[in-house]
Design a protein around this nucleic acid. Structure first.
Lengths: 105, 105
DNA sequence: ATAATTGATAAATTTTTATTTATGGATTGT
DNA sequence: ACAATCCATAAATAAAAATTTATCAATTAT
């Protein structure tokens, strides 16, 4: 029997992950970045929201690990980090104590 | 190429799902329910939080579809709905446009 | 050096979500 | 019917997150 107990700190971290996905705009950002990495202006044009708002949400996503930011010249390229999303699924499975892939019901 | 565009309404629904997991207490509840279905008093004793607070969070979880509630006599049995969690993973994959299971990187 | 571009941050405000406390509704046991 | 148990809901408050507006920092181009 696997140990499925998680510390408060681990749970907090996990909730931050889910919290980062608790936003239509952030899901849109992830969707856009899933198609191609972009800088903030690209996203601004594509998603029609203000630049500071985008920066704010990008910061949230970055802190949760779902995107990475790399400075290239004067722009900052944002890139999706699928591994963080996979990890999130793995961690919720830990909380539950079973794999979501199994038990088709 | 699969259609990975989602309506605003679908995205909203998805964010509500993630929002429901954006709480340490709610993850604890899910963890408890993953072990065995329970009524509110069971959870109250196990998680050491007030009954109204539990009811509130259970309502959130129920609205997100992660738990079901069935009245049995004077108690209400709460049960985990793993399918809803699986669906959530499926939907985020839809947003991204690829499967998290594939692409180990 | 100056101007233009790109993006972050700060402050103020609004909106959403969580928590407490109090109360009421439903069901069972006597 | 009455008391006890189990749970939801409502109202008030507190806390957290999102949004806007304004400003500043870093990089590049002239």
């Amino acid at each position: 029997m696997a140990d499925n107990s998680m510390s408060d700190r681990e749970l907090r971290r996990l909730t931050r992950g889910f919290g980062a996905l608790h936003s239509v705009l952030r899901l849109r950002i992830l969707s856009a970045l899933a198609q191609n990495e972009s800088n903030v202006r690209d996203l601004e044009a594509k998603l029609r929201v203000s630049q500071p708002l985008l920066s704010w949400h990008l910061t949230q996503l970055r802190q949760a690990g779902f995107v990475s930011a790399e400075r290239v010249g004067r722009e900052v390229r944002y890139r999706l980090q699928p591994t963080a999303l996979r990890d999130l699924v793995g961690q919720i499975e830990n909380v539950l104590g079973f794999s979501l892939a199994d038990n088709p019901d």
